[in-house]
Design a protein around this nucleic acid. Structure first.
Length: 260
DNA sequence: ATGGTCGCGTAGCGA
């Protein structure tokens, strides 16, 4: 089973590019971030035509997440628990039947947090604290669980082209990396680090300043795997080539393959 | 091509 995450940076602006990629790579489950539209405006029919079930947690203009699956959803949750006043659509979670076990997938769009310090950074860290609490609850189920998405965190120096240039950025500051580690150390494996782990394998290149042609990227799109998922993980592919497409997103898909 | 980000929404913010 292929489980993908992709920050598409507007599903409507990206639709031809995204549909081409789905036709070519046919993920079984895909989490999309920054769909930038309300549920009613999501191009649902186009994905249903490709054989997908579609669930969205949309928002006007900003944020918004979706989860797509070839198999029907058995359970869907919208919104990250822990703050009923949080209006930002950044979390969706669903369960799909695997061949021999249920598969729970959460799609996340973790707050960027810049500028740091400041209220946006405080929101990022509090969101991560909420994610940690919820992730701990989910781990207790002992399921095949993948938390997939745009974490907006660069875990290691090896995951950024120029660590010094990013030292004060909300994506690389010590508090952000510590919060990411605290979630991971609840008992998750980073899929990429488990099966590959090479330095300088990026998932995002800024539109500005020729970041893509100069390969000035960062790795911020991750698949965190429960032990039951990690045991079944056979490979991870970062679809770097997608960044070179006409009208590309600034992020590329990351796909994990699981025996389930 | 003497420029050099993109999307949303139609100014300026967010990333």
């Amino acid at each position: 089973m292929k489980i993908a995450t992709w920050n598409v940076n507007s599903v409507k602006a990206r639709l031809p590019v995204v549909l081409d990629w789905f036709r070519k790579h046919a993920p079984d489950i895909a989490c999309l971030q920054e769909i930038k539209c309300i549920d009613e405006e999501f191009p649902r029919l186009e994905f249903e035509d490709l054989g997908y079930h579609v669930e969205t947690h949309g928002q006007k203009t900003y944020n918004g997440v979706a989860i797509l699956s070839k198999r029907p959803f058995e359970e869907v949750r919208r919104g990250l628990p822990g703050d009923d006043g949080d209006e930002q659509a950044r979390y969706i979670e669903a369960v799909v039947a695997g061949d021999d076990a249920p598969v729970r997938v959460a799609g996340i769009y973790l707050p960027n947090g810049n500028p740091a310090p400041g209220p946006k950074y405080d929101y990022k860290l509090s969101w991560m604290a909420r994610l940690k609490r919820h992730a701990a609850d989910l781990l207790a189920h002992e399921e095949v669980l993948v938390i997939a998405g745009d974490y907006n965190v660069i875990p290691r120096e090896a995951d950024v082209h120029d660590p010094a240039a990013w030292a004060d950025d909300a994506l690389f500051r010590p508090e952000s990396r510590a919060a990411f580690r605290a979630i991971k150390w609840l008992g998750f494996a980073d899929a990429f680090e488990q099966v590959d782990g090479r330095a300088h394998q990026y998932s995002f290149w800024d539109y500005q300043g020729g970041a893509w042609p100069k390969d000035r990227g960062i790795r911020i799109d991750h698949l965190l795997c429960s032990p039951q998922a990690a045991d079944r993980l056979t490979g991870v592919t970062i679809h770097r080539d997608a960044r070179g497409a006409e009208k590309a997103s600034d992020h590329v898909p990351v796909v994990g393959e699981f025996r389930v």
